[in-house]
Nucleic acid binder design. Structure first.
Length: 372
DNA sequence: AACGCGTGGAA
DNA sequence: TTTCCAAGCGT
């Protein structure tokens, strides 16, 4: 315990802290679909979905996912397009591609049994220190730390840990703390209790200290400085990107879509053809026409009037998309990454939300035209 | 270590 | 409207 930030650990009555936290968790925790049993596969899927994602958002995805893929074997058999469709709208799509890769590995190499040791878990794609600890403690009852944003916020207050939780190195300090504090009788309830406390009571901006089951243990509360913790440095501003996209129809009424690159932003999702706008001085439909000829050998009549303008905000960038409609004038050779599909078939492909917005505008426009 | 990687909702 | 996210991981 040579870590200066953890000097308050010795002032915690560990047994009472564990008892207060676990008793509260068992009495007050939410009924969530991944808490109906300890199936390691279900725990695993839920932990991946919950990465950087709110519980309320995850619940419907988790329910549907488990109906589609009830077992790890069923999920491991599914192809990437299928699992991406199941993830459509959840974001951070590499999560489900990694999960699918890892599930195949567990089925083929580990006889379908989710590993129960730290080193083996950490070798699986998409499982890092947090998720490994969560699976170990929740599914297998192993006293391993599972340090997420909630845990860092809660413990930064209880122990007055001033380190910047935005820094990668800081997580290790909290892991050291949890290793000292964690209950060996019920590691699952302890870890989940810390996270549940962070989600329901010890919230970022207005912690409900008067309702807190462990406030007698909380050093920040006693000093009245809970609002000043945790220390978290700010992230930089997102970069703005101008895009021009085309919803292009051929004479049969089929729509041109393409698959994105297999790495990077929105990897392997489908989209309407688009390009970045190099400058402000040329009309966007000219730029798009040139791009389509050069990139896909497509002759098209792109209407100069914009269908709509779509703004979409990511964590690290902002898209501003000028959306045009157009008519394909030549036959297009379809490939694995370039397809012509009917309007009804669009729904079978996984699209980013930004492109869903474009499609919604197109349908809305079409409906209006048909009415008049 | 720093950055890339999504989304919808709360403050 | 702007800001900050929310049960992180890969590179």
């Amino acid at each position: 315990m040579s870590i200066p930030s953890l000097k308050n650990l010795e002032n915690i009555h560990i047994q009472n802290f564990q008892d207060d936290l676990i008793q509260w968790f068992k009495k007050s925790h939410r009924q969530l679909p991944w808490r109906i049993n300890r199936d390691p596969y279900r725990i695993w899927v839920s932990e991946i979905m919950l990465q950087q994602t709110k519980v309320d958002t995850v619940i419907p995805y988790f329910e549907k996912f488990m109906k589609s893929f009830p077992t790890i074997e069923a999920f491991a058999e599914a192809n990437e397009d299928t699992v991406l469709k199941a993830w459509e709208g959840l974001g951070y799509y590499s999560r489900v591609r990694n999960l699918n890769t890892a599930a195949k590995e567990v089925v083929n190499i580990h006889a379908g049994k989710v590993p129960h040791t730290l080193d083996v878990l950490l070798q699986l794609k998409g499982i890092g220190p947090y998720t490994a600890g969560a699976i170990l403690s929740i599914a297998y009852g192993v006293p391993a730390p599972a340090v997420d944003g909630n845990v860092m916020r809660v413990l930064s207050r209880i122990l007055i840990i001033p380190d910047d939780i935005a820094k990668p190195a800081t997580r290790k300090i909290f892991e050291t703390a949890v290793k000292q504090l964690i209950s060996h009788e019920d590691p699952s309830a302890f870890n989940q209790g810390l996270m549940e406390l962070g989600a329901l009571i010890c919230t970022p901006t207005s912690p409900a200290c008067l309702l807190c089951p462990v406030r007698v243990h909380c050093h920040a509360y006693h000093q009245g400085i809970e609002m000043q913790l945790p220390v978290k440095s700010k992230k930089k501003q997102p970069k703005k990107v101008q895009l021009i996209a085309g919803i292009l129809r051929n004479e049969e009424g089929k729509i041109l879509i393409r698959k994105r690159e297999n790495e990077g932003l929105l990897a392997n999702l489908w989209e309407f053809p688009n390009c970045e706008r190099p400058n402000q001085y040329m009309p966007s439909h000219f730029i798009l026409t040139d791009y389509l000829e050069n990139t896909h050998k497509i002759v098209s009549l792109v209407q100069p009037s914009k269908l709509t303008e779509v703004k979409h905000v990511f964590t690290h960038l902002i898209w501003n998309v000028h959306v045009h409609v157009g008519e394909l004038k030549n036959a297009v050779e379809e490939t694995t990454h370039l397809k012509l599909v009917s309007e009804d078939e669009i729904a079978a492909y996984a699209f980013p939300v930004a492109h869903q917005k474009m499609w919604d505008s197109y349908i809305e426009m079409k409906t209006k035209v048909e009415k008049s």
